[in-house]
Design a protein around this nucleic acid. Sequence first.
DNA 1: TGAATATATGCCCATTTTGGCATATGTCAA
DNA 2: TTGACATATGCCAAAATGGGCATATATTCA
Lengths: 131, 131
Amino acid sequence: MPKWAYIQCVPRAATTSDVFNAIAEPRRRQIIDVLGHSGEMPVGELVLAVGLTQPAVSKHLSVLREVGVVAVERRGRERVYRLNGEGLKTVHDWVSVFERYWSNQLNRIKQRSESLARTSKGAPRNEKGTP
Amino acid sequence: MPKWAYIQCVPRAATTSDVFNAIAEPRRRQIIDVLGHSGEMPVGELVLAVGLTQPAVSKHLSVLREVGVVAVERRGRERVYRLNGEGLKTVHDWVSVFERYWSNQLNRIKQRSESLARTSKGAPRNEKGTP
DNA sequence: TGAATATATGCCCATTTTGGCATATGTCAA
DNA sequence: TTGACATATGCCAAAATGGGCATATATTCA
């Protein structure tokens, strides 16, 4: 592929409103962890749990809510958050595809031979349309 | 928890050099996907595959390499990248904890009852040390 | 050696993100 | 109604990020 042809590039990649982005933040993962094993929790307690200011926590919760990883319920003057674990299924499904890479030695060997087969005979890394 | 006490906050959360952050980028996931089912690929072909400029792709590969999700091998004047799927195990392990949320109805019911039990009797959302 | 190819880097800019503070909004109690 | 409590939002600053272009750094070939 000599000439690069500098392909027209899309303006920008969408980053927000994406589960992968939501869990990229250590603090948000922490919140998810806490909610995951405590069932539910109002903002106030989450603030104490993660050690951030209340506004900061609220913002993280907002992000998590937008991507559907948590759900809120107004209870009195509190806002009780609970984990909606199903929102993480997307991530799980995506990584699970690569499970063969670490599952066990047998599978690792199998995967390697598959790879070799692809590279030498059948379809040697031919994503684009070079015949 | 009446008074907020505005806890001293850490300067900033580390975002880079973290697998979760690496896969937060759609483009990087795309690269991972491509490498995942093609075995290996030199930068040039990846450029065509993802439709970005060569420098951009190189930078993404750099990030993926730093977190150990891909590995490089110099072959002639090419740099052949391959997926090191084991680097994704961290992510898999983390999300798998929440598998009970979507696996099947039985587990979902089980999980709900567990949650109820925790909330009413045993340890009702008591993360901090309030006795 | 010199040209062409293949990648990586440096620099620059626009955008995004996180966190803090102040404050608005909503809720309960007296 | 007034005041205390619980959260969400707006605004600002610091930092990071992604992408493009130009260019440095190999590496192969004539």
